[in-house]
Design a protein around this nucleic acid. Structure first.
Lengths: 143, 143
DNA sequence: CCACCATATCGTCAATTAACGAATTGACAT
DNA sequence: ATGTCAATTCGTTAATTGACGATATGGTGG
C-alpha cells in the first residue's frame, strides 16, 4: 500500500463519469446494462470505466444468470478505497447531474435488466428529444 | 461545490508528484526553490504543479522577501480539500519515496532558501551519482 | 454441444496532461 | 529608477486518457 495503489484509487475518482457510476451504486448493485442506460455512454466506454473502478478496488462484480452486477466494494483490499467511498457517500448529494442520474437509476431498477437489454440499453426518455445527461466541466454553475 | 470542484481536488491528488509535494509540506511550509530541490524536476514543472494544487485549494502561498513559501491550506474554500488533506496525513507515511523526500526536505530546510538558490536549486547529494529520486509506477514493490 | 447475447477487449482518434527549456514577469534591493 | 533573480508563463513534445465502433469472449439456456 503506497503511492501506486493510492494513485489507482485517486485516478479512479478523478473522473466525473466514474464518480457518477459510484454514486448510482450507492443505492445498491446494478447490472452493466442498467449502468449503460443511466449514464448513456457507449457500452465499451462504460465497460472500461468499470474495469478501472474494479482494478482500484472500489467496486466488485457478481454474475447472476446472463447479467453481471456491480456494487461498491465494502471490504476492499485497497486500503484507500474504504475511506474514499465513505467520503463520496457524504459528498455530491446535491449535484444536479448526480440527482438526475439517481432518478434515471431508479427508473432503471424499476424496469429491470431484461427490458433494458431488449430496448438496446437505453431508458424510455422523452419521446421527442434525445435525453442524455452529460457532464460539462465548463457549464455555468447550477441554477 | 459539486462535481467540478470535486474533480479539481481529486485530479490534483491523482498525480504522484503532487502528492509528494503535499507530503513534504505536511512538515511545514517551504519555498518554491526548496521544493524544486527536493523533488528534482524542472522549475517550470514544479511551478505548474503548485499552480494546480493552489487552484484546487489544497495549498496557499505567502511571499517573504525574494521567496514564495507554500503551505497546506488548513481552511480552504474548497469543501473537499480539508478531508483529503486529513486523509493524506495518515497515508503514505511508510512509502519509500515519501520517506526519501522527507529526508531531502529536512536537508533543504537546514540549508535554507538562500544556499539552495545559489546552488542552482539542487541539494548536495552524493558526490558521484546523480541522486534524483523518481517515481516509477511499474517498479517492483518496495523491498 | 451449440447458438445467443451480455460483457470485455481491441484499434483508432481527439483531447488532455506532464515534462522540458526559453522567455517573461514583477518584487526586492540597491 | 533600475538591475537582479525567484517564480510564472509560454511553446513544444511525448505519453496518457476517454470516447467510439468493431470484434472477440465465454457463460446461459436451449
Amino acid at each position: 500500500m503506497s503511492l501506486r495503489s493510492h494513485e489507482d484509487v485517486m485516478k479512479a475518482v478523478a473522473d466525473p463519469t466514474r464518480v457518477r457510476i459510484l454514486k448510482i451504486l450507492e443505492e445498491g448493485e446494478m447490472c452493466v446494462c442498467q449502468i449503460i442506460a443511466v449514464i448513456a455512454l457507449g457500452q465499451s466506454t462504460i465497460s472500461k470505466h468499470l474495469f478501472l473502478l474494479r482494478a482500484a478496488g472500489l467496486i466488485k462484480d457478481r454474475r447472476d444468470k446472463k447479467w453481471i452486477h456491480y456494487s461498491l466494494d465494502g471490504k476492499s483490499v485497497n486500503l484507500y478505497a474504504g475511506p474514499v467511498l465513505r467520503n463520496l457517500r457524504k459528498w455530491l448529494n446535491d449535484d444536479p447531474l448526480v440527482l438526475k442520474d439517481r432518478e434515471r437509476a431508479a427508473m432503471a431498477r424499476e424496469i429491470g435488466p431484461i427490458a433494458i437489454c431488449e430496448r438496446g440499453m437505453s431508458l424510455p426518455g422523452r419521446k421527442t428529444a434525445r435525453c442524455r445527461p452529460v457532464y460539462d466541466r465548463d457549464a455555468p454553475a447550477a441554477r
